[in-house]
Design a protein around this nucleic acid. Structure first.
Lengths: 177, 177
DNA sequence: TCACAATTGATAATTGTTACCACCTGTAAG
DNA sequence: CTTACAGGTGGTAACAATTATCAATTGTGA
């Protein structure tokens, strides 16, 4: 499912929220106001927020919530399959409320992440027996790219001198998503 | 190139070392004993070592080398294309001396990483115009799996109760590679 | 309503990485 | 072979993200 418009996302979020309590229950988890607020914030996000970002958002309604709770809860959501953790470029952990199978485009400059559907990725692994001792559990294709904005900046793409690096980091503004 | 045997790796390492000075030069880098030791250790590793592991290794010949130098140098090697940084599961950074195109199998339990060749991954992206503003720079397919050892352990795979988690983490011994 | 396991908030501790800076050393020019 | 100096290094402090700890609180099923 490609979520592009706000109304797409709103509909998806509503459906997921409706089932959330039941899913917690199934997973043996208590349904707490904090958990509800956190998954709601995650599903409302158009990007791939970090724990800190969710924290800032949730704090508006729950001023006493702890950052630790946000971290714990996001991990818990991943564990019961209600969220995905996006690993990219050794950035801080990003979370994705979209649990449908999809992959990610990551900007090497600003580290923005965008969902993308790529049919056929999983099929590449069918029938391979050279995973040896490994039991296949899933896969994640990470597409490295430069967004329009970062294509214009001097950056890592020009590895001539170390000096460039400080430059590119200083001038790039890393964001969630 | 699939590096399986020690002699494969030794031959590959020898070839790479022979060119190393020239490549440093080309990249505008000084050829220091520390850099030589670090790339040598990286190429000798059968796994995907962390900075700390390379540090421990290199320290045997250079007892005064600094961990910061190891971090800096590994990043530098990536920048000039002499190494790859492997991003997986929000583990600490792993480095890969194999610069030939390949992908990675990651054990979700112990986080061991193994190289794997999967032809056709890059081709999946050919001719896609829905990357929109993004300019394709490369991609990395990360295969999530369980190694034989971790298949036997109770683990994240059974998300019935939170109690399991502490268990699975306590009993798993994370390693490099 | 009760008992208890699960959860939370507050904060300390940990981990991996980077910044800083004084000193040292490869490098290329003479 | 010197020499000058940009670049590199070591030691350490700072940093950011995450996890551990633990007493107090709260959902849950009986």
């Amino acid at each position: 499912m490609q979520m592009v418009t706000d109304s797409d996302r709103a509909a998806y979020a509503a459906a997921r929220m409706a089932e959330f309590a039941a899913r917690c229950h199934r997973g043996g988890l208590a349904v707490t106001p904090q958990r509800l607020a956190i998954i709601r914030a995650l599903l409302a996000a158009a990007d791939h927020p970090r724990a800190e970002t969710i924290y800032a958002q949730v704090r508006r309604e729950h001023p006493h919530i702890s950052l630790a709770t946000v971290h714990r809860t996001l991990e818990t959501l991943c564990r019961i399959g209600e969220a995905r953790k996006v690993t990219a470029l050794h950035d801080s952990a990003r979370y994705d409320g979209n649990t449908a199978p999809h992959h990610h485009v990551v900007c090497l400059g600003c580290r923005r992440i965008r969902d993308i559907e790529i049919p056929g990725v999983e099929r590449l692994l069918d029938g391979r027996d050279d995973l040896g001792e490994f039991k296949l559990m899933g896969c994640a294709l990470e597409i490295h790219a430069l967004c329009a904005q970062c294509q214009r900046k001097p950056g890592r793409s020009n590895p001539k001198r170390l000096a460039n690096r400080k430059q590119s980091i200083a001038t790039s503004n890393h964001v969630d998503s």
